[in-house]
Structure formats: C-alpha cells, structure tokens
Design a protein around this nucleic acid. Structure first.
Lengths: 213, 213, 213, 213
DNA sequence: TATGAATGAGAATTCATTCAT
DNA sequence: AATGAATGAATTCTCATTCAT
C-alpha cells in the first residue's frame, strides 16, 4: 500500500524539472530574482547550463511557473478554511485560528515560495504582475470569508469589505513574513513560535485588537 | 544662525544631486532596483552618463543614500508621536490616530521612498540590509511607544512587546502599501481615502479588532 | 540487372533518409542554412533529434549531400542537351530552346535545390564551395556546348568562350531565379509562364538581343 | 582648397561608426552574415565588444544600415544613366555602355556591399527582405530606362517590360558577380577586365545577342 | 563640473552533437 | 533504428563604470 502524503507542501521532487524548480525558488527567495543567475541554479542542481532550457523556456518562465504552482497550493488552503455554517463568535474564532494555522504552516513548508510572494518586488514586470495577482486572489478569498461570516451573523455588518480584507491580509502577510524571514529585532523570539501559537495570537488581535490581547 | 551660501555653484550642486536622487528613487520604486539603469536615471534627469558618477560613487551608493535620508525623515515623524503623558484610553486612541496620520502623510509625500522600503526585496544584499535595518528601527520605535503606553497604564500588560510591535507594523505597512501602490482589488476604494480617514479606521481596528469595527 | 531488395527495412531506411533530405532542402532553401535548425528538420519529419544523426554525420554533411545529388541531376540534363551535329541557325535555336526548357523544368521540379544553388551565400565555407563548384561545372558544360556549336559553324567564332558562357549562365540563372522565387516586381507575370514559354523568350534574347526581341 | 572626392564610392571612413560599417560589410560579404560574429568585427576594428553597441542597436541593425546606404548609392548611379533624349540606336548603345560602366565601377568600388547584395541569401528574414527590396528597386529603375528608350523609338515595342528588365538585370548581376567574386573557371580571364571593357562586351550581347557578338 | 565615447566582465540563450537506453 | 534528455561551447547583448577632454 502506498502512502500518499497529505500535507500542504507543494511537491517539488523526483524529476529533473521539479528539482530545478526547487533550486530556483530557493535562490530567488534568498538572493532575489535578478541576483540569481541561471548558472547558479544549474550549478546547484548539478546539471549543465543547456539542460535548464530543456525544461524551461526562459528564466522568466520558471519564475512564473513557481508562482503559478505556489498560488494554486496557497489558494487551496484558504478555500478549505471557508466558514460554512452558522455559529457563535467563539466558533468563528476557532475557525479563523485553524485557517491561520494552515496558512502559516503552508508558509513554513513553502518558505521560499512565500518569501518570493511577500518580498520580491524587484523582478521584471511580468513577474511582479504574477505576484500581485496572487496576492489579490488571496485577499479576495479572505473577503469572501468575511462576507460569509457576516451573512451568518458572526461578524457585525460593515460597509467596506475591502478594507477589512486589507487589514486582515496586512496582519497575515506581515506576521508571517516576520516569523519566517524577518526583519525581526534580535531580542524577539517571534521566529521560535509554532504555527499554532502564532495563529492563536494573531487571531486574538484580529478580533479584539490591542485592548483585548 | 547658519549662513546659507547663495553661491550659484553650490546651489546647483545640491540641486543636481537632489534631482538625481529624486529621479532614482522614483525609478527604483516603479521598476525595481535592477531594472533601473543608470542610463535611465541620467536620461530622465537630462544629464550625461558620466555626470552621475560625479555625485555618486555607484548605483549602490545612491540607493543607500536614498534609504538613509528616507529613514531619517520617517523616524523623525515616529519619534514625534511618542506618548509622553498619562491619560485615558480615549486619549491614547487619539494620540495613535494622530501618529498614524502623520506616518501615512509622510508616505504620501515620499511615496517612492515608501515603495522602495515596503516592496523592494530584489536588490543586492547591501541594499536589502539597509531596507531591513530601517524597518527594524521603525518597529523598535513602535515598541518603545507601546512600552510607554503600558507604563502609563494605558494598555494592558503583555509579556511580548515584540509581538505587539510586529502586529502593529504589519498593519501599518500593509495598509499603507495597499493605499499607496496596491495590490488592491479593482472595486476597492481604498486608494481614495485621506490619510486622516485611513488612520481612523486603522486605529479602530488596532485597538478593538474586527469585532469592534 | 540490379536486384532491388524488397526488404522492408532497407526501404524504410531509404525512405527515412530521403524524407530527411527532402525536409532539409526545403528548409535550407526557404530559410537559409543557418536559420534552419536540426530541431526544425526533425520536427517537420516527425522523428526524434537523435535519429537525424543515424542518417547523417552532421548538418554540413546533409547539405553537401543535397548539393551532390542535385548537381548530378542538373548536369545530366545539361549533358543531354549537347548539340551533336551540324545544322542551321534555326536548328541550333531550336536545340537551345529545348535545352533551356529542360533546365527550367528541372528547376521547377527541384525548386528547393535550385534555390539553394542560386541564392545560398550565407552558409559555411565548405558548403559555399560545393555550391560554387556546381555552378562552375554547369558553366563548363555550357562552354563546351558553345564550342561544339562553333565547330559546327553554327555560331560565329569568338576568342572568349568563357565570357560567352558567363553571359549565358547569367541569363539562365537570373531568369530562372526570378521565375521561381523572385525577387520580382508585383506587377510582373513572370512567375505565371510555363517552362516552355520562358525558354522561348530567353533563347530569343540569347541569340538576337534586345533589338531582336 | 579642399578637394572633394567626386567618385561613386560610398564613403565609409573617418568616424568609428563608419569604420565599423566598413569592417562589417567586408566580413558579411566574405564569410556571410551568420558566420560573421560581432567579436570578429570589433576585433578587426580594434575596439571593445561593447563599443559596437554604442553605434548600432544590434547585428541586424548594422546589416540593414549597410544595405540602406549601399542602395542609395547604387540607385543614384542608375538614375544618372537615364536616357533623356531621342537618338539613334548607336547613341543608345553608347548610353547603355556608359551606364553599365558606371554600375560596374560602383560594384568595384563597393565590392563588399555588392557581394552582400548579390550573394547573401542566408541571413535572417529582415535582411533578406532588405536585399530583395533593393534588387527590385534596381530592376524597376532599369524598366523605366527601357520604357523611356521605347518612347523615344530607340527600341522596338514589346508587351512585357518586366521580362526585358529581368533579362537585363540577370545579365548585369550575373556578369558583375562573376567578374568581382566568381564562381569563375580557373582559365577564364574575366576577372582581369576593366569596367569599361566589361560594359562594352555586355552591351554588345544585350543588343545583338550571341549572333551579334 | 560635465560630457559621452569606450570598456569589458558577465548574463541569458541557442543549438549542433552525444549518449545511455 | 530510434529516442529524447543532456551537454557545453559559442554568441549576442547589457550595463555599471572609467576616462580623456
């Protein structure tokens, strides 16, 4: 019997193509798109320069592929977190916390993709666009979550869904980015938290603000 | 009293230098550090290629200079917003709102610097470091603000100042970034808000969370 | 009598080889030697990249083979057209016309080879040499034709056979090239002529010049 | 007093740009477009690789520039040769001979451009197009010459101007190509002729054909 | 101060050819 | 015979930086 991995991780393994994707996303994240040379990627993958072009049309193409695959995985996680039934605030907080935990875990397991998504602003226009689109899609998913929660009477009505979604996304992106790759103050123990803890604290703030922490 | 030289030469020197800085920060922000060529900068500034090197040692140098100057201005704004006296929650909320408004206004007036600060992750290591340091310094300033507020009994005690500061910074950076340069959903009217409005909504969330909005 | 093997393998072998030759000559002619990639050839032939090298040692080898085969066919046509007996001018004109018609027909049936022969100047030295040799051999054949005609008293003597042959070749090559692949003025109906017509008009000019047309 | 050169030669001198043009046209002609590397050009010109790109956008750009300049010079020569007045056949033959001599001389003085024009079929499509256009323009100029001659009653009427122009162009191109760069039979003394002699013999054939030589 | 031509070290990409299967 | 993945040398082009004037 073959055990199928059920984790969130975007599978990047086995074939040469996936190996190149894995190496590329790591270096793009660590050093940025432009500072990463094709020669670096193939050297780390242990193949010849030309081999890269057997699998990808160009440097841009591999970056877009990384974004495409990562986006799919990420959105799948978020869609799974939809509130689907009526309930108390308590229940909703629990639901939110579970969703955030999943997202943070996804980030932890795909940290290079996440870094690319959250910090890469220096690449070429097509890639910037790909990143932008993914983040907008993510924000959209959250907006729908919030709307659903309001329908179910779990959240007070508000005229501006977009603002709420923006505030949420800001929290999530900012916290995750600091957690995974800083910038973080040397004294802070943020990086040591588990996804679960981080989700709990973030959700607390999300619902009750500074005064409720 | 400081005598300002009225010598044309000196003024021109400063002017030209400022002009190059202004052009550079705009292009760095719009197109990213690597996609911005020295030739683009000098073309837009209307000077010859060599002239650039009279004023700046290198491309990296001008980027670091941009970050240095912007950081000074930004930190000055934040330091001004320190809570300096005891008071009610009401007063603290007002204070926070004023501080946020100032920061958002600074961002509006220095949008290219802000974009560089908030979105440039693709530049070379030295520059990434400069950006990181500035954001850490900013977060530090907020942490001190929060500590002061707790001392004055305006906020409940909490063991993790860093986490609070991180949450705050996430909010501010995320909201400001979306406000000024997206990515933003086409239907959202976020971009139309004044710095004042934006500060009000953000502070509301900051203190009371989603439930309090 | 030569026994033709009816073994499928051998036939397939020949077929595949011919197919690659046919595809190659077409693309060399249409796009030039350098712009034609081995990958283009095998793609159009529907075989794998490696297969090419089972039949041909290299890209250069297939080009030389194309030229060799085409040259044999072309010279065969020309040799057939030799004037072999005494006769009047009238008879010689008819003979010339028949020869030209055969040549033009050969060009029509081997248009890609002809295009390669008449227009490829951009290939590597070995191939240029092959083309040059073929055209010299062709010119030689015409020179011998002219000498024969003079022996038989059908043409006036002249000291420079080579010049006459060069003039003839120029006419034939130029007319055929324009007829088959241009460059040709959009209004011209040159391309619509039959090989027969074209031969008639060319021979007329050949013998009587502009004044005699 | 400064003597202004009044010869036909397209001036390729003095400045770096023109030096690069001169080197490029020579190598394109000698070795073909694709076999000529930018590194060859700059090495022969004695400048750095990057310098090439200060003057020309790309390899294609310099080829097109070469064709553009050469075309202008060539058409200028041909336009000068227009028959402008009525006259006897004798006069027209003289006129034609003078025109051909000028063209041959132009070819001699711009042999590399001429070689490019007459033999380069292997370059990329844009360049092939440039060559084609130039040759069509040339043929057009001849067609107009012939029409004029018919108007003046110097040549018998004929329904197909295009065919006549094609025959003429074939002669001129073929003879010039053989004269300047072969392929030519080793025994032939074609290459030793002067432009004047060549023009005389070609015109003789042009008007009277083989029988009249 | 200012110019702009010149430099040259790379960078991405191409493509004929090889080779294990 | 056939495949197609892999190779790597070669090529075009870029661009930060220098330098003579």
């Amino acid at each position: 019997m073959i055990a199928i991995s059920s984790d969130n991780k975007v599978l990047l393994r086995d074939t040469r193509r996936e190996q190149l994707l894995a190496v590329a996303v790591e270096r793009f994240a660590k050093y940025g798109y432009h500072s990463t040379k094709i020669s670096d990627i193939v050297a780390q993958a242990g193949v010849a320069q030309g081999t890269f072009y057997w699998y990808f049309k160009s440097k841009e193409a591999i970056a877009l592929e990384i974004i495409r695959v990562g986006r799919e995985g990420l959105l799948m996680v978020i869609e799974r977190g939809y509130p689907t039934q009526n309930g108390s605030v308590q229940i909703m907080v629990q639901g939110s916390q579970r969703l955030l935990k999943d997202i943070f875990q996804f980030g932890q397991e795909n940290r290079y993709f996440m870094e690319l998504l959250l910090t890469e602003g220096g690449a070429d226009e097509t890639i910037r666009q790909g990143v932008r689109d993914t983040r907008i899609a993510m924000e959209e998913a959250f907006r729908r979550n919030i709307e659903r929660a309001i329908e179910f009477g779990m959240l007070p009505k508000s005229s501006d869904m977009h603002m709420r979604a923006a505030l949420l996304m800001s929290l999530i992106e900012g916290v995750m980015a600091r957690w995974l790759f800083g910038p973080v103050h040397p004294e802070s123990d943020l990086a040591q938290r588990s996804a679960e803890q981080l989700a709990a604290e973030t959700v607390q703030f999300e619902f009750f603000g500074l005064l409720g922490i």
